[in-house]
Design a protein around this nucleic acid. Structure first.
Length: 609
DNA sequence: CTAGGGTTAG
């Protein structure tokens, strides 16, 4: 900031802008305000920072003391051009400030993602006695993210009510978005419903609020209703809708939206194309994603990331590495932290552990300008564990510069299960049930590990602990798309119209597979019941119902495409492989973390997931 | 003069 003045002095000496400034001086001091105002206004509109700086420099050089209005324009100029330190310098030097000065500065911080600074300034504004207006509220709420931000957001809400701005459409959409991002969807919906008028932005905010929380059906239902009410949609709306469709893997609907946006020729097409890449890959259709990607006239880092994530989730390690190489050759985009997450997890799922480790080492050396964060370390743990290098993974965790999270221990525990490492598994499992006592899955893996070592006393203890502490947060659910309809199945489902037929089909399959040597994997059952009961529970798993339904209804040449909201269990995975083998059907199964493409009884995940 | 919604990961 001390550099500002000399920089400005040098800028002030050249260019034809100088001409304009000279003219202003000639015409007399009463012309200065209008002249400066006009020039600055023009610079703001064109985001011409160099010229703007020269105008500012001229003020300083001629000892002109700009009034409040012009100082505000300078703050606005600098914030809009992303020169935040300069904006703050002007702001700090102001002899007096009004609501516009404060709001412009707050907006500058919040748009740069510096929410903490923005909130801090807002509090200072209140203390200074300047009354916030609708612009201030709409702005400051965008910085109320995270736990501490939400607390402040609630307080700001009551302030908004006090100032009678709750029904203002800008304030209202910002407010409902704040609630939605904090996971308070009921409050968000309440604000939305109480708005006296609606527009594209407020409608998009609530739809995307549902979508971002994974409430995909609700998002779509609301979107359809709003469409019927005649609300228009733009590229942001469609991006949000596509997010919801990705979550549901609703390929037919996704294609419809695709056709629709092609016909509309919406502006900001990159954003929609990014969403389409993601949608097709999450619907299992990687080739479509790649086709869109290849034909894009311009790509952002998100385009590359979406494509990389696609390959990664489908277990296509070689494609991940190849695309990453292309991305580095292309100098216009720089890989970011998401890129490295996608690449590392792609190497892990694609069995390219040495490549993954090389890329991680490069990251840690700092060659890429990206700091390795805990999630990246988590990918490496996953990668080592998946490759059977369990001890190495354990040592790696001990040496990490981060405190291991439950997710990291969980990943190692999973590796211990697959590679039957009882010593490390028992240690990790005990640690994990302490950190995450509510997660039932941990107890199950741990007790199975003990069982495999014949440590029955420990098995009993873990089971008891589980009954005591574990809660099942999210019920398992699987679905399948047929003629633009999603057919959803729950384990204890009584709702599907063809449930009887589906139930008998599963039973029939089970008998048939048993004759061929299928043994139900009872260790997948969380409940402490007898074996017969366990088998019943297993046969009612939602993914088996959806698979059986797919076998009944899906046309023969088409893969059976099942989506599950949680991780798939070992037994259902076996079951799917048997369906593929016995019926010659390709099965595509998407679970919480990845795709399983099963052809001829062989799964693309290599049986580790 | 100052304002709200969005796409990748977890």
């Amino acid at each position: 900031m001390p550099l500002l003045r000399p920089t400005l002095n040098s800028l002030c000496t050249k260019g034809h802008l100088q001409e304009a400034l000279l003219q202003m001086a000639v015409k007399g001091p009463e012309m200065l305000f209008d002249g400066y105002n006009m020039l600055l206004n023009d610079c703001v509109n064109r985001k011409a920072i160099r010229e703007g700086q020269r105008v500012h420099a001229h003020m300083i050089k001629t000892c002109y003391l700009p009034p409040l209005y012009l100082r505000n324009r300078l703050v606005i100029l600098y914030t809009k051009c992303d020169y935040l330190t300069d904006a703050r310098y002007v702001f700090d030097e102001m002899p007096e400030r009004n609501v516009v000065s404060w709001t412009a500065m707050i907006s500058g911080y919040s748009q740069r993602g510096l929410g903490f600074e923005a909130l801090h300034l807002f509090v200072r504004m209140l203390r200074s006695g300047t009354e916030p207006n609708e612009f201030t509220f709409a702005t400051v709420l965008t910085s109320c993210t995270g736990a501490s931000g939400f607390e402040l957001g609630r307080q700001i809400h009551s302030l908004i009510i006090k100032h009678n701005y709750e029904s203002h459409i800008f304030v209202g959409s910002s407010l409902l978005d704040m609630y939605a991002k904090a996971g308070k969807i009921i409050e968000a919906r309440g604000v939305f419903e109480s708005l006296p008028e609606r527009d594209v932005v407020s409608c998009t905010a609530i739809v995307s609020g549902y979508a971002q929380l994974g409430l995909d059906e609700e998002a779509l239902e609301l979107f359809r209703r709003l469409q019927k009410e005649g609300i228009s949609a733009n590229y942001v709306t469609y991006a949000s809708v596509l997010t919801a469709l990705s979550g549901l893997a609703a390929l037919d609907h996704g294609k419809q939206v695709h056709n629709h946006v092609l016909r509309c020729e919406l502006p900001f097409y990159v954003v929609i194309q990014n969403s389409l890449i993601d949608m097709y890959s999450k619907c299992g259709n990687l080739n479509y994603s790649r086709r869109i990607f290849d034909r894009m006239p311009e790509r952002t880092v998100i385009s590359w990331n979406a494509m990389l994530v696609g390959y990664s989730k489908h277990g296509r390690g070689r494609e991940v590495v190849e695309l990453f190489r292309l991305m580095r050759e292309e100098k216009r985009v720089k890989p970011d932290c998401v890129t490295f997450l996608a690449v590392l997890s792609g190497c892990s799922h694609g069995r390219l552990e040495d490549t993954g480790l090389e890329i991680f080492d490069e990251m840690v050396k700092g060659n890429n300008g990206i700091q390795a964060e805990i999630e990246h370390y988590g990918c490496v743990v996953d990668l080592l564990g998946r490759a059977g290098r369990v001890e190495e993974a354990f040592e790696f965790i001990k040496r990490m510069p981060f405190k291991p999270t439950a997710a990291i221990w969980g990943s190692l525990l999973g590796a211990c299960r697959v590679h039957s490492n009882i010593d490390i598994g028992a240690f990790v499992g005990q640690r994990l049930v302490e950190i995450e006592p509510e997660n039932a899955g941990n107890y199950v893996i741990l007790s199975n590990l003990y069982a495999s070592a014949g440590r029955w006393e420990d098995v009993r203890e873990v089971r008891e602990l589980m009954m005591d502490k574990a809660v099942i947060k999210e019920p398992g659910r699987s679905w399948i798309e047929l003629d633009q309809t999603l057919h959803t199945f729950h384990a204890s489902d009584r709702s599907h119209p063809r449930r009887e037929e589906v139930f008998w089909k599963v039973k029939e399959l089970s008998i048939k597979f048993k004759e061929a040597g299928y043994v139900p994997d009872l260790s997948c059952v969380l409940y402490d019941v007898d074996e017969e009961q366990k088998e019943k529970i297993l046969l009612a798993h939602s993914e088996k119902l959806a698979l059986a339904f797919g076998l009944i209804v899906a046309p023969e040449k088409v893969p059976i495409r099942v989506i599950k909201n949680l991780r798939i269990c070992v037994d259902c995975h076996n079951f799917a492989k048997l369906i593929s083998k016995f019926y010659g059907r390709d099965v595509s199964l998407r679970d919480k973390s990845r795709f399983h493409h099963i052809v001829g009884g062989i799964c693309s995940c290599g049986d580790y997931w």
